[in-house]
Design a protein around this nucleic acid. Structure first.
Lengths: 236, 236
DNA sequence: CGCGAACTTGAGGCGTGTCAACCCCTGTGG
DNA sequence: CCACAGGGGTTGACACGCCTCAAGTTCGCG
């Protein structure tokens, strides 16, 4: 695997590298590629941390669990997203990373990343940006969970997903969900029935079509207005 | 200001440094000290990012806002905590950092931190740990907001605060809240009335005493059991 | 000492959860 | 080609926890 020829590089750690920097990264950064079958874990909470994993293909969820069995989905990761950052702090992972479809990830040893980063400032800077963006994204999740109603949470979730698909060159307004209603519900702090009902309501309001996991956002502006607290415009 | 003689160093960026590393950090890391009066902002969402700020004295909250005026408290920061990491990703801060009491922070230029970090691996590693721990803490917040009932959210919040006070050498079970009911509510995704009622209920259940902002946790084990889903033991 | 902000408490409404039934896809095997 | 099984999704009725609105109290600060 060579980072220099990877189409995901602009959104990955070796973004902005050129020339000899890129050569070194090609040679030393990614030690291997790892396949994870649908339903399998890339790592589990409690596992020893030693690597971070940019997603190359496929789709993941990360899940935290409490001792009494409750679970919370903390994120969904797709091509270009970085998994494993939760482990740096304590040396142990504290979420499960589970593939929602057959997936492949690059394996980047954290020790190697530290060494390479010391002699390649843009690489380090990109790592910091990535961690910072995850913090900001988590703040967005807190806003969703703490201050929004079910309809707003789902709308925000869909627009965020749409935006992420778009930056990866995929269709922004017509896509297939990789996760179940229950997983969406866990991420949004809702029960699966509420997610289902809310999808139906958004469809009844003419904002989107939903059929099982196929989504088509027919009125993205209307969805955005819902988030801005504006009433949806009538037809007459 | 010299990091080497700061009592908060073990929980700050220059933790684990020794000898010449510490000398360099003393000379170059902290460019100045900044005072922030109660109610004033250290930085605002939209401000240009150029520094991170370890809290030296005082107490802060960070707040994200939406265009329609809703706010969400994303965290409370006290001595040793690091403010400003949200800005690295985009070069702009995306939360407001507001002092809840007169406070002092160290100013660490991000550019200087990057340069110093390159020649001082333990410093860089500590930065990474700090960011990772913030990510993990945010996942904890998501779990609270997404999967817990009001009573559990408040119990978890109080135990977390208790633990943080304890690591700073303060009393774990008797302390004064620096934030209002409304701010706690925002952080926990509850209305201030619900926070107030829940405090009263925990007191009625014999787990703590509360009087305005003075808190005394009289039965920390009971509070922990509440989080573990165990019923509180009866008296007979 | 007095004002205003913060906190507490109550009554009633609403949104989401709970429980249950049914439907729709998909895959399997006869 | 169809029958069947099973998981995921949808929908309904009802319950409950939290929110809303309102009144009254306490505390902190000028």
């Amino acid at each position: 695997m060579r980072c220099s020829s990877c189409h995901l590089r602009p959104s990955c750690l070796p973004a902005h590298l050129v020339g000899s920097e890129l050569d070194r990264v090609d040679a030393l950064l990614v030690t291997s590629l790892r396949r994870v079958a649908r339903g399998e874990t890339l790592f589990r909470a409690g596992d020893r941390f030693d690597s971070v994993y940019p997603v190359w293909t496929g789709f993941f969820k990360t899940v935290v669990a409490t001792r009494q069995g409750t679970e919370q989905v903390t994120g969904f990761q797709m091509g270009g997203d970085l998994l494993g950052l939760d482990g740096i702090g304590t040396g142990l992972h504290c979420v499960d990373a589970i593939a929602l479809e057959d997936a492949q990830v690059c394996v980047i040893g954290y020790a190697a990343l530290e060494v390479l980063g010391r002699e390649t400032p843009p690489l380090l800077r990109q790592l910091h940006r990535t961690m910072s963006r995850e913090i900001v994204a988590d703040h967005g999740a807190m806003l969703r969970l703490g201050s929004m109603r079910a309809e707003e949470r789902l709308a925000e979730f869909l627009l965020g997903l749409s935006r992420r698909l778009q930056t990866r060159g995929l269709s922004a307004y017509s896509f297939v969900l990789r996760m179940s209603r229950e997983e969406i519900g866990s991420y949004l702090g809702l029960k699966l029935e509420t997610v289902s009902r809310t999808f139906s309501k958004l469809q009844a309001d003419g904002l989107l079509f939903v059929s099982q996991r196929k989504i088509q956002i027919t009125d993205p502006v209307g969805v955005q207005h819902l988030l801005d607290g504006l009433a949806v415009q009538g037809e007459g």
